[in-house]
Amino acid sequence: MTSFELVFSLFGLLLGLALAEVLGGFGTAVQLRRKIHIGWLTPLLGALVALDITSFWMIAWGMRELVPAHYVTLMGGLLIIGLYYLIARITFPHDFDDWPDLDAYYFEHRKWVLGGAMTCNLIAMVALVALGAEPLQGALTRWSMLVFIPAVIAAMFVKNKRANVALLAVLVVQYPLVPTLNLIGVRG
């Protein structure tokens, strides 16, 4: 077993559970669509969290040769993945009777979820640098981060519903867009 396999056996499980939390929230919302107002905000937030977790999974795979198997690595991973699980857990309500309007739920919980996602990304970037990687390789990746941070901060504090939908849509679209442009050879 390689060091990466040892470390990632635990964290792959937790990342999978985090994705299951988000997908379960989507499923429950769809099941209750006649009883609750779903809106755009919480589903877009759920998509953002799912895509961010998936992108972290890919980053972790790309770093498999650099990840040492020791307690510090496990603690650092636990910090990031534990935070991902927490934000995935609160992306959708667990008692929809208390939250019949998911837009209201979004505005009540967005700072925790978005702030947690941004914190995970920043900790991961610091860890990548500490492991000797260059996390912002390529112009598209740098542009993506220049969009990500201000858009997340704006979505955390802007009170306008339409502005939040637009910000979340931009954030969600960039996740498949940047890797696709990189794959086809576009250099920002």
Results as ranks from 00 to 15, higher is better:
M1H: 11
T2S: 15
T2Q: 08
S3I: 05
V7T: 02
V7K: 01
S9Q: 11
L10S: 09
G12K: 07
L13T: 15
L13W: 02
L14H: 00
L17C: 07
A18E: 03
A20K: 00
A20N: 08
E21R: 14
V22W: 01
T28K: 14
A29F: 01
L32C: 07
R33D: 08
R34N: 09
R34F: 07
I38A: 08
G39N: 06
L44D: 03
D52E: 13
I53A: 00
I53C: 00
S55Q: 13
F56H: 12
A60D: 10
W61P: 00
V67I: 15
V67S: 06
P68H: 05
A69N: 13
H70I: 04
H70W: 12
Y71D: 13
V72N: 09
M75D: 06
G77D: 04
L79P: 01
I80L: 05
I80A: 03
L83V: 08
L86D: 03
L86S: 12
I90K: 09
D95F: 09
D97P: 01
D103N: 13
Y105V: 08
Y105N: 04
Y106L: 08
Y106G: 03
E108W: 13
R110C: 06
W112E: 11
V113S: 04
A117F: 02
M118I: 12
C120R: 01
I123N: 00
I123Y: 02
A130D: 07
L131S: 07
L131N: 01
G132P: 08
E134H: 15
P135A: 03
P135S: 02
L136G: 09
A139N: 10
L140A: 08
T141W: 05
R142F: 12
W143N: 05
L146F: 12
P150G: 05
A151C: 15
A154L: 14
F157Q: 07
F157E: 04
N160H: 14
N160P: 02
L167H: 09
V170A: 10
Y175F: 15
Y175M: 13
L177Y: 03
P179Y: 09
T180Y: 14
L183E: 13
I184G: 05
I184A: 04
I184D: 00
R187K: 15
